[in-house]
Simulated scan of single mutants.
Amino acid sequence: MEAIELKNVSFAYPDGHVANEELNLIIQKGERVAIVGQNGAGKTTAVKLMNGLNKPTNGDVLINGVNTKMQTTAQVSAYVGYVFQNPDDQIFNSNVQKEIEYMLHYSKLDSQEIERRVSRAVELTGIESYLHMNPFDVPYSIRKFITIAMVLALETPYIILDEPTAGQDLHGIQTLTKLLDRLQEEGKCVITITHDMEFVADNFARVITMANKRIIADDSARNTFWSTEILTEARLKKPQIGEISEELGMEGNIIYRHELVELLNKK
């Protein structure tokens, strides 16, 4: 099976702090999944298990059927690309183009293939005008897209985005939405950690909710955001459209703008 599988996975840091407990999950290639929950829920630790940065204390993580315990982090990262929450943790080259090319040269790809991959990654992220600048001289929001481009250039079948909307304006969020659509068209799996519930509602059909180090729900966006139990345990809020429709007493568990507009037009 082409999928990321977590089987009864728990993870504890060397100091004994347990970050994840008994995670069971299958995310198939081509899926688009959001992972939500408050700080401390275990989201980032969980996705680091998926790309080999963490190895489970108990249980097994399988990438396309291969146990990560049997692979190095570098071997796992050939399948699962990870964009860190803080772009400054991933950037170290003197200009943006070198940053995107670095791992491609390390992988000994030929110049034509490197050019193709860089061109694609730059086009998808819209960072053409920054290629010859020092990454630390560009705005934080653009640095986020630089690190996304770095991972896109690796062309892994699975891509993890950790808080991609942080620091983004409307244009940045629209670029992210187009990127998600394009990657899904290409058959890529995208797993996104985010606190932005509007972004989740607008872009993800499947939502995995974490709280207290565990997965407490794996459901549609609509069912997730209209479950008082899930929202209370995970300390989440409905997207704004859902809150407005609830205040107006609208029926249908609305979370999308077009649904609210259609019902209001019928009034």
Rank of each mutant, 00 (worst) to 15 (best):
E2S: 02
E5P: 01
L6H: 07
V9W: 01
S10G: 09
A12R: 12
P14I: 08
G16R: 10
E21A: 05
L23I: 14
Q28W: 10
Q28D: 15
G30W: 12
V33T: 13
V36T: 14
G37L: 02
Q38H: 11
A41C: 08
K43A: 04
T45E: 12
L49R: 08
L49G: 05
N51Q: 12
L53K: 09
T57S: 13
T57R: 04
G59S: 05
G59T: 08
D60L: 01
N64T: 10
V66H: 15
N67T: 02
N67P: 01
T68P: 09
T68I: 15
T68W: 13
M70E: 13
A74C: 00
Q75P: 05
A78W: 05
A78E: 14
G81E: 04
G81R: 14
Y82Q: 13
V83Y: 13
V83M: 11
F84A: 10
Q85V: 00
D88A: 07
D89Y: 10
I91A: 00
N93R: 03
S94Q: 14
S94C: 13
Q97W: 04
I100F: 03
L104R: 05
H105Y: 12
Y106E: 15
Y106P: 12
S107C: 14
S107H: 11
D110M: 06
S111R: 15
E113T: 11
R117P: 12
V118W: 00
A121I: 06
T125P: 06
S129P: 00
S129E: 10
S129Y: 01
N134H: 10
V138R: 07
P139N: 01
P139V: 04
K144R: 09
M150S: 15
M150I: 07
L152D: 11
A153Y: 00
A153M: 02
I159F: 13
Q168N: 10
I173Q: 03
L176D: 11
L176Y: 08
T177V: 07
D181Y: 01
E185G: 00
G187P: 02
I193L: 11
T194G: 07
D196I: 03
E198Q: 13
E198C: 06
F199C: 07
V200N: 03
A201I: 04
A201T: 06
A201W: 04
A205Q: 15
I208D: 14
I208S: 10
I208H: 14
A211H: 13
D219F: 01
S220L: 06
N223L: 01
R235H: 10
P239A: 13
G242M: 02
E246L: 07
G252Q: 01
I254L: 03
R257Y: 14
R257S: 15
L260G: 12
E262M: 02
L263K: 12
L264T: 11
N265D: 07
K267F: 06
K267C: 09
